[in-house]
Design a protein around this nucleic acid. Sequence first.
DNA 1: AAAAGCCCCTGGATGC
DNA 2: TGCATCCAGGGGCTTT
Length: 271
Amino acid sequence: MPELPEVEVTRRSFASHIAGAGIVQVRMGKLLRWPLGIDPRQLVGQTVVGVRRRGKYLLLDLSQGLLLLHLGMSGSLAFGRLMAAPGVHDHFDLQTTQGTLRLNDPRRFGAVVFALSEQDPVAQKLLGKLGMEPLEDGFLLQEFVTRLKQRKAPIKQVLLAGDVVVGVGNIYASEALFLAEIRPTARACRLSRVRLVRLQAAIREVLVRAVEKGGSTLRDFSNAQGESGHFQLEANVYGRAGEPCRVCATPIKAIRQGQRSTFFCPICQKS
DNA sequence: AAAAGCCCCTGGATGC
DNA sequence: TGCATCCAGGGGCTTT
């Protein structure tokens, strides 16, 4: 479900509410992707200092250590003072003095992991190979070009890998490549500098726009206040197989790349 | 080092 | 109505 825009929208929807809160109780449901890595009782009494994002991870800074949260494919967070009894897919509750943060994740590809610091090997295993943040000043054109020049794989799959630039998932990879007029199957190293300049701008553009629209709600995404996103309504290619391209009216094509679907316009994205 | 496949898991849509 | 099949927003791990 959640790519960078959904994770960022989620972060903004509860960060200010939870900042400064004391942890009162922690409830674990079914096992997520990994174990928490600490006895939940050791979190009680700690303070949630703030919430940051790195790629698709949310980092809850605690007075001692941090929690790394990942929403996987089907995860979403809810934050509120009044929480219903946990449902079958509510696998983590962080009850604080300012409200409860709850992770709902039917497929359980998500995770909540404790680490003592970002340098902790536990954290580094997850964060260590992440690429540049696309919405920050550190999204450097020269590094973007240099890194892509050494990759022979299709550009779509290099974007998804997240080791050059983070946060671009299956929806926004297709959307960014459409804006940049680049065919998803093109080998990264074969793209000219001019086209990579366009791609970098397109990635920024589509992610910024998606955050503004509250993310994409395909099936069930909502932010921590329960609000849906609306970016899916202005997708140019994702999920639009057979429908007319908004630019040239040619039917949008769907293909498979690395067991994920990819959408593109065969005319606007010639190569 | 990079690329390609395999999984983890549940639920909804589709087809017979 | 029942059952099989396919597909889904991610990404770590293993094998080439």
